[in-house]
Amino acid sequence: MRRFAPPAALLAVSILMGWFAHRLGLGSINRPEPGFFPFWICVGLAATSIFLMTRDLRQSPEDEATSQAVFTLAGYRRVLSVMAGTALFGLLLEVSGFLAATFIFMAFCWLVIDRQSLLRGLLISAVASAAAFVLFVKLLNVHFPRGLLGF
């Protein structure tokens, strides 16, 4: 089952995207229109995923044990919270400015995900964001959105 799911997901993606592409207009092979390439890529992707699915059906279940994929609930939670933190960083950048966004992001990583002690977590977050500020804004002159504090 575990090996069956990814090709199935790919198949779903290719059907959805292929349908969108079809609506854009395919044109002909001599005069392809915008939908032509995406559509045929989707057909290829669908074919590949069906091939992968049928092959996995034929294979003995022992192979499944050798598959590397072992998802654990704890692992998932960490992965998703890291993703959420990174997304938060992106969203905050133009709202609170570079320095604040960085500090919040670092604090999130060390306090919420890594569970450092409060003082220690805040301290290394402060040091890390100050260092990043000096490196990127002061030394490399990268332009970041200004926050409400003016940096």
Binding site: V95, S96, F103, L111, V112, L148, L149, G150
Partner: peptide, 21 residues
Amino acid sequence: RRSLLFLFVVALVCLPIQSAH
């Protein structure tokens, strides 16, 4: 508790400050 503390930090840093005149 930890998450609340974190949210407090977020709120503190995002506090609006008057921009230049």
